[in-house]
Write a protein that binds this DNA or RNA. Structure first.
Lengths: 242, 242
DNA sequence: AACCTTACCACCTATGTGCGAAAT
DNA sequence: AGATTTCGCACATAGGTGGTAAGG
């Protein structure tokens, strides 16, 4: 089983500035989208994919003088919400047909939300996504018990600070440049998005060396909930609305 | 198991004029949407839903002098394309949570289409949708053999003539009035959509009496393909695209 | 001619962006 | 006083309508 973050080059560009993700009351998409390239599953075994977004340190952070630094102790970590991939239980052959994409996930700071695709985060705290893969030799719904993932990894190259407004103009410019929905802001000024505004605000969170980066792919605290395929219990509702 | 057509009142209004559905090369939505109210399934049994659109007579039709009449023999009937509901195999409890809606189906006259949600119809021929329900006591993928539906009904109140342009202004006006995407055409003229333009072009296809209508809910010719839950074979691809 | 089909169009709905003033 | 959050906004993408003129 080989699983890697898709659009890794784009993620790396954001990560070099320390990535930021907007959180709003009604929920905001991640950009880039969380998407994974999946290879070498067993074609006739069955799998489910879940994603959670874990805190990667214990601090609150601030952006000052062009760089991120600690701003005292952070909020306590609660359990991370586990989001099932909407496709539910599928064969390995089916999963490998295309990248596994969690593009319905939205980030929010509204603790009251009920939408299972919304993930509540604390602003000015650091996070990274964790992908878990569970395997079943059948999709028999009578399956009981708690599964242990056959694969689990936290992707440090997709780490970010949750914010309610962009702090680093380099990150903002790169979002405007790469996200098609922000096209309306591209030619407002002669943008210098590829050249950092201040030289010192790059590469604060992740080491440039990919080998070192791999060492960092561990969340600071996690409370994973193993998925169950018992219908109605923690079952993914990504309905096909009507 | 009780299954009925949702939005029946709206369907009835169209049916009184003889309903029409536009077909295009790239595929056109049905309006109203095919949607079914489902009650009294066994909560812990598993079900799949399929829909097909069957010819309900053997003729070609024409709209002349404000009414539909036969226009000679119709095209030969091929097998109706069976469209799985995108939710695949779900428990009765899950299915009953909301109406079962086939809103991704599109109608086309392009025989070369590959999209599994596109249904190819002949213009100027009459059709009605048939819903089939299959039941499984498990969603074990090793299940083999051809299933017999536990429920199957052709809904005559949702019958229509496939057309490339609306023939009956009463139908067109009702579509404009009821479909939110046609709002731009509502105030072009003082519309009289509720009052038929010609008195004689109503109620040609379905009897007004609900009891008689029930007798008509049989397709003229069908070639249903029972669904299989073997992955990869005729498996619904309503992906969660990315 | 008469009938039917096609391609492009204006006008909708719905939703994803960052902006910037105002509120907290 | 300063940092952070909220809200309405203009401007994008994406896609669903029937109209209309031209084509078959």
């Amino acid at each position: 089983m080989r699983i890697s973050l898709a659009k890794e080059d784009l993620w790396r560009q954001f990560n070099e500035f320390t990535n930021e993700m907007i959180i709003t009351k009604n929920g905001r998409n991640l950009f880039p989208c969380l998407e994974f390239k999946v290879e070498d599953l067993s074609p006739f075994e069955f799998y489910t994919f879940t994603l959670q977004i874990d805190r990667i340190d214990s601090n609150r952070h601030k952006f000052q003088g062009g760089e991120w630094s600690s701003n005292g102790p952070g909020e306590p970590c609660g359990p991370s919400r586990v989001v099932w991939h909407p496709s539910g239980v599928k064969s390995g052959a089916d999963w490998m047909k295309r990248d596994v994409c969690f593009d319905r996930i939205k980030l929010t700071n509204n603790v009251g939300v009920t939408d299972p695709n919304h993930i509540v985060l604390h602003s000015m705290h650091k996070y990274a996504p964790t992908l878990s893969v569970y395997q079943y030799s059948t999709c028999d719904p009578n399956f009981e018990g708690l599964a242990t993932p056959v694969f689990q990894r936290t992707f440090g190259s997709a780490a970010f600070v949750a914010v309610t407004a962009y702090q680093n103009n380099n990150v903002k410019n790169l979002k405007v440049e790469k996200n098609k929905y922000a096209r309306g802001f591209r030619n407002e000024r002669k943008r210098s998005s590829s050249s950092p505004e201040t030289p010192e605000n790059s590469a604060k969170m992740m080491p440039q060396n990919p080998e070192e980066a791999l060492q960092m792919q561990q969340p600071w605290c996690t409370f994973p909930y193993p998925p169950s395929v018992i219908p109605g219990y923690n079952y993914p509702y990504y309905g096909y609305g009507c």
